[in-house]
Design a protein around this nucleic acid. Structure first.
Lengths: 134, 134, 134, 134
DNA sequence: GTGGTCTAGACCACA
DNA sequence: GTGGTCTAGACCACT
């Protein structure tokens, strides 16, 4: 499990951990039933206080995304495909809505937004290609 | 000056004030040279402590968006068009980038994002039409 | 009487007025017995509230640098040469002391300070030459 | 960390704190990565309200001189040598410029300024020697 | 433990 | 009238 923590973003670390794990589960990068890294292991990896990881895991368990098996560890909970794609769509719409609202307020045209979107997609695609060739 | 404060968002009030004023300045809804509502006035309007408003104003002054005239009040600072449109574009790109990154991670196609964007724009446009007919 | 007011310096306007008049008196640019511009006149010239000028004048009167002649106006008070050159030396030493203290704290050598001083003097000298040719 | 606060200087306390910490960082007396005294600790030491210290620290963070580590404390930010010596030179030049401008206005010769500077340096040097023998 | 936010209320400086 | 500073004390979020 790869996590990127930005200590200077103002965003609490436990939230950054939660967000990234949640996204990986929705994206299928963390498969259902898969075991997560232990609190200590993950804490050591990203060099933060174990309490911080524990908090993130607990909150994800409350959300129903993780399942605790006592004495064993934490696992990715089952989530059917419909739920998953609904969650994905909702999360995307929520973020995109903020972008569109901003564009409308700034009187930036739909056309300009469309072109900017294309540019950003192209950037990610070329990024991925580079990663694959490494 | 109209501000919407959400006391339960977790986002600090002074930041909400800053964000909304910053956006209004960039959008031109607050014109250059215009005097802002006084600290006490705005504080009374949104029912918070004057210090909270004062803090928001001070930080915006440090950012260079506001200008103080001692004993008189605070005014929208001069900002040339180029700076303004650059700031607007940057803010939009920053938000849109998150949306695209999310779509890529979730393997949602550029086409789907485009259509969702269209839907969201349509929603705002009809919203504005309704507002105009009031 | 020429005054330069910087509205963005943080320094109160009435203090800027006081400092500049005090310096001009010490430098002899405002001669003993000379009449000062009236409160209204000066206020109009530098575009500030007349109360601000009035405050500056009153404080300078208390300091003994100005003399009020009722119904006539304010005049530069008498100050003997010895007092004047002592005041000048004191003011300069006070400012220079801060510079030296800073250099010592930053471990900038006396030699470097000397050379910087030379450069700054040269800058002012060429400035004055330009002014004289205008 | 030693700070001298003058409660009667007219200069706001939070600014005095900022100026002194800024100078200590530039002078290297506070090393990069070093943890600062906690808000409560420093507040107790100089007997002011914690918010006053907090304000000073926050503004220095905005300036980029300090770095926050959430739940841990504040640390001196990394600043490369070039930036540091540039900042030092700028601060010194700014102060020295005022001294030279004053001398020019008062028609005090460059030679006299030079000698005064020497005297002031000598005073600080002997001061330091005394401190070292204590 | 750390810093951040907010309040209520006081007093000051400025124009 | 304007904003700026400071206090005392509360509560919260983070590690």
């Amino acid at each position: 499990m790869l996590l990127q923590i930005d200590h200077h973003s103002g965003q609490p670390i436990y939230r950054q951990v939660m967000d990234q794990i949640r996204r990986q589960i929705l994206a299928g990068q963390l498969a259902q039933g898969e075991q997560l890294a232990s609190v200590r292991e993950l804490a050591a990896q990203i060099k933060v206080n174990p309490m911080t990881i524990s908090k993130a895991y607990s909150l994800l368990e409350i959300e129903g995304l993780l399942e605790r098996r006592r004495g064993v560890g934490l696992f990715v909970a089952g989530l059917n495909k419909a739920q998953k794609s609904r969650s994905k769509a909702e999360l995307l719409e929520q973020i995109l809505d903020r972008a569109v609202a901003t564009a409308v307020q700034f009187e930036i045209s739909e056309q300009d937004v469309h072109e900017l979107t294309k540019r950003l997609f192209a950037r990610y695609t070329s990024q991925i290609r580079r990663d694959e060739h490494e």
